[in-house]
């Protein structure tokens, strides 16, 4: 059975990020997406420690430890960047200004609940960082993760067993086996990776899958508008 490598997953997610998008790439697996964003498209990266723009990993010998990303790795900025403090940075999230957040996950429920900060182990030292802010902090939350955990269990579940990071926040899931959209009508499979079969995918996934949208994935969804305020929306709607 074909499985996408981590880099192939990153390349797949990158294809769905349209020009003009303001995007936060979470620490770990999602960071790889930056390597696959088209260089001829203006896509804006946001890092919660206070920088917006485009950048690449700083080459050895050129590290500036005042110039880091959220993973605390040194970066090299391209022209056009902006710096800002932490409250403004998180205002960009909770204020609905970011278009897409790409996050890793331990578990995702079919309703879009996200668990990615804690495994619930009683002796674990809790550490949340920006995870809960990111989970509610963009118009669309993409999760990229391995389809199965290290024990071979489905990471897509009816209900997350780990402590939640956010409620009903995930809209799309990219795994090493498939691309899935979480909708009010259920979990729709948009794509299967390589020779992964529908029957196999369902057999390793703990929630019912809807294959009616298979092959309908639009490669680059149009950017959603920032939601209007209630009163403005009412005015528009007459």
């Amino acid at each position: 059975m074909d499985k996408q490598t981590r880099n192939a997953m990153a390349a797949r997610v990158a294809r769905d990020i349209p020009e003009g998008a303001y995007v936060n790439l979470g620490i770990g697996l999602p960071t790889l997406v930056a390597n696959y964003l088209a260089t001829d498209k203006d896509i804006f990266l946001h890092s919660e420690n206070g920088v917006l723009g485009r950048w690449s990993a700083a080459p050895a010998g050129e590290e500036d430890w005042d110039m880091i990303n959220a993973g605390k790795e040194p970066i090299l900025l391209a022209p056009g960047a902006a710096f800002f403090h932490h409250a403004d940075s998180f205002g960009m999230m909770r204020g609905g200004h970011l278009d897409i957040c790409v996050l890793g996950a331990f578990q995702v429920s079919s309703r879009g609940d996200l668990a990615n900060w804690h495994t619930g182990a009683p002796d674990a030292i809790p550490a949340v960082g920006g995870a809960m802010d990111l989970a509610i902090g963009a118009k669309r939350i993409f999760v990229m993760m391995e389809h199965l955990d290290k024990q071979g269990r489905s990471k897509l579940l009816e209900t997350c067993s780990y402590p939640l990071t956010g409620l009903g926040c995930v809209s799309r899931v990219y795994t090493d086996l498939a691309t899935l959209e979480l909708t009010a009508e259920g979990v729709k499979v948009l794509e299967l990776v390589g020779d992964t079969g529908a029957e196999y995918l369902q057999s390793v996934t703990a929630v019912p899958l809807d294959f009616s949208a298979l092959g309908l994935a639009e490669p680059a969804p149009a950017l959603p508008e920032r939601p209007l305020s209630r009163s403005a929306a009412a005015a528009v709607n007459g």
């Binding site: 919660e48 403090h85 932490h86 409250a87 940075s89 998180f90 205002g91 999230m93 909770r94 030292i125 809790p126 550490a127 949340v128 960082g129 920006g130 995870a131 809960m132 802010d133 902090g137």
Partner: peptide, 21 residues
């Protein structure tokens, strides 16, 4: 922390910034 010699209040990063603001 494991020795119980420090109290920890864990705060989402954005809440930490906004509560200070």
């Amino acid at each position: 922390y494991r020795a119980g010699r420090i109290e920890l209040e864990i705060i989402p990063q954005g809440n930490l910034a906004e509560r200070l603001r």
